[in-house]
Structure formats: C-alpha cells, structure tokens
Design a protein around this nucleic acid. Structure first.
Lengths: 225, 225
DNA sequence: AATTAAATTTAGACAAATCTAAATTAATTT
DNA sequence: AAATTAATTTAGATTTGTCTAAATTTAATT
C-alpha cells in the first residue's frame, strides 16, 4: 500500500511540518529533488489513502495515520544509522545514504529486534532522537507559546509564572497542562494570538499570557484512544 | 541500472540453470510467480544489458556479467539471513522473506562490512554456501561427468581411474584437470556424450570415460583475466 | 482595485513492469 | 510427414511514478 516513494514523501512532509506547521508544494518538491507537478500527483494519492490533510492550493499536513507511518520510517532510518556506525564501523557522515535504502524494509519485527539488539538507543549518530516502537519521540525542547510557528500542534507542558491571575485566565480559556493546541493567527499590532484548542473553539490570547505558556512538540503518535 | 525486479530474475535464472543448464520461459515464470509473457519482456531487457545469453524460442542462460550480478544478490541474501538468525534471534524458517528485501540494498561496502562483522561465515542458516566478496562459491559437491545435465558448464576436478590408457584418451581430447566443459548431447544408445570444451571444438566421449571424469560446478565468477 | 508575479494544479506524455488474449514457433504424436 | 499440442512471443492495455508545458489560482505590487 505505502510504496517507497510514498514513504519518502511522508518522511519529508513530516520534517517540513515540524519546522513550519503547514507544508507547501514547492517546499516539498525542493526537499525531494523533484518537480512541483509530481508532488501534486503524489499528494492526491496520499490524500486518497487518508495519510494527508490536503485541499488544493491550500497547503497540507499529515493526518494521524500519515504521521504514524512517517515516524516508523524515521525510526527505521535512525536505528539503521546507529547500527551502521556502532556495529559496522561506518563513519557518521557516510551512513545517511545507506539508511535511505534500509529504512524501506518493511518487517516491523525486524525493526524491533534490531532495536533490542542495539540496546534501545535514544539517539542516532547525528544526535537525533530515535522514535520508540509505538512512535513516541522523546526529548524535544520546550518553547514558549509566543515563539511557536503557525499551525503546529503542540502540547502544553508548563506554566512559567503561576500567579492566581494567570491561572484564572488560562482556566477561562480551557488551557491547562496537557492541552493540545496550535496557533492559527498572529496579530502583529499587539502580538496577541488566535489559538485553536483541540476539540474546542478558537480563543484569543495576549502576548503576556503567551510568554508564560510553555509547550512541547506533540508526541506525534500518542493520538490513540 | 539493475532494478529490483531484474535482480530477482537474475537470481532465479541462476538457481534454475544450476539445476538444468539452460532455462526456459515457463520454468522461470513458475519460479517467479509471474506470467510467461512478463518473463519474455524481461528477458529482452536483460539481453540488451548483456546480462543474458538469449535467442527467442531457444532457452537462455546468464552471461558472465549476469552471473556476477546474480551471485552478489545471493551473497547479500545469505549474509542477511545469517545476520537475522545469529544476531537478531530469528528462527531459520522466518528469515527468507525479510532477506528477500534486504538482498536488494545496493551498497557493496555495507555487504563487505556485514560479512566481516559476522566473521565471514561459510554457509547461511539453511546450509547453503555464502559467496565471498569476489563472488566465489566454495564447497560444491563433485559429480561424475556421466551424471551431469546438459548445458551445464563445469570444471574437471578429478580423474577416478588413472590408468595410462585412460589418460591417453583424455589427453587426446584435451581434457585435463581444470578444463571447463559442458555436455551438449547425450546418446541413449550407448550413453556416449558429445562434449563442448571451452575454446575448443566438440568431442565425443564414451560412457566408460564419462564415468571416470569428476567435475564440479564452475566458480561462476572466476571468469576474469 | 487592477495588474503582475509566483505558486500550484491540470493535461498529456513517457518509462518500467506487469497482465490478457492472440499469434507464432517448436515439439510431439498419430 | 501432417496434424495436434505445448511453449513462447507479440500486440495492446494497465498501473505507478515521473516529467514538461500550459492553465489556473493565490499573492503581491503598483
């Protein structure tokens, strides 16, 4: 169902949306060294498979399923890189290309056995975190909400200044630890934000509040019931 | 240049010609679970790439280059099987399918490093010999020329009964240790054989002589100058 | 707001690998 | 040796992934 080419697209989209929230056709074409028209063709197929949330001319991002698939590819890539460096004495600069091939080997059992054989490493030779068997990615840095790009769904992981007034306004807006949200719009005039909280309507938040809300990248695959 | 599908064809042809000398379209189609028409299409491409010696309706076999490529795929397959069983604790019955994917990873350096990491194993978990880095395959059994199938090029490795009369007739026919030859025709009447000696014309050999000439599969890739 | 520019998509083409059905060649049998 | 059967190949179609060039939509600028 998910061909090598599709996996490559999913992986590239994952990385790009990690940076920017929403991904554009040209960006993806550049990342994949292909043409925008080819990307459009592939986007339609990924959408049909419900791996992608996409409407023409409007940018796109991975669905839950799409993220799940992308993270598994990334997991494989990073585990194989670790294997090549730690077991086969490759230099860290030369493993990427080989891992680009190995990451498409499909057996889940193989990956999990490899993971155990390597002692469940936390990061690959370049220092990037290796997703675990369920697709959870650990150790992403925390940033304050004010610095977050648009359209990137994150989880609230901390409140910097816990005054009663602060907590009151957060409670009023249904924001607390663990809440998943993303910024939909930024108003340059006062640096206030329009924020979409998962399963709730839009709310508006001031710059002062935004500076005190700490967030972290969602564990992409924790979206299970 | 050599796609996954081409590699699969080369590998299957190699195994079949190991058995029968010349391979037929239907046999190959059966081995690959595909249709004869699809095989014919592929044969043309392999011939164009000079990997195959083929004339339509006449059967086919690998060229030197084709053998070389096939053996490298087999080497990878068997090394990965060994890795899966010895390092990742897989059962020997479950490794074949995974190795079918891993065998197409292209990096030569990877294979050679893997080989060293595994301690240069001689055989895979099923007991089949693992070709070395130059494509040499060790430990094939010796058989007498009388039992050899048609069109299978082998190397003379021994003479069972070394009488002077025997050696005389062999010398006369330019057969000695190391000679490469293949049987072109068998005459059921007296079980005599028509034998093509590499770089020489056809000769005819009696059943008595054939019983005393011992041969071994050619090291397929030793065909270098 | 109208125009220009940039990004994106559509239309149509191509190569690789496969298939079915029909035609051809080789082998077998009467 | 002619006829039948079996094997093989050709012809034409399909799918997947890609491309170029043209058309369309959105964004930016005058």
């Amino acid at each position: 169902m998910i061909s090598v080419s599709k996996e490559n697209h999913l992986k590239a989209i994952f990385h790009l949306q990690q940076e920017k929230g929403l991904v554009t056709t040209n960006e993806l074409a550049a990342a994949l060294q292909t043409r925008p028209a080819s990307v459009t063709d592939m986007l339609k197929k990924l959408k049909d498979q419900k791996l992608l949330i996409y409407e023409r001319y409007k940018g796109f991002k991975l669905s839950g399923e799409g993220k799940k698939a992308a993270v598994q590819v990334i997991r494989k890539h990073r585990l194989w890189e670790y294997f090549l460096v730690e077991k086969l004495q490759f230099g860290w600069e030369e493993v990427h290309e080989i891992a680009e091939e190995l990451e498409h080997i499909s057996s889940k059992k193989l990956v999990d056995r490899l993971d155990a054989f390597l002692g469940h490493p936390e990061t690959d030779p370049h220092g990037d975190p290796i997703p675990d068997s369920q697709g959870r990615i650990h150790s992403r840095r925390q940033v304050c909400l004010a610095e977050l790009p648009l359209n990137r769904e994150v989880q609230v992981t901390g409140i910097a200044s816990q005054t009663a007034e602060m907590l009151e306004i957060l409670q009023h807006n249904h924001i607390r630890l663990g809440t998943r949200l993303e910024i939909k719009k930024k108003f340059p005039f006062d640096e206030s934000l329009e924020v979409k909280i998962r399963n709730r309507p839009l709310v508006t938040i001031s710059a002062q509040v935004a500076k005190n809300v700490l967030v972290k990248d969602d564990e992409p695959l924790a979206e299970k019931r």
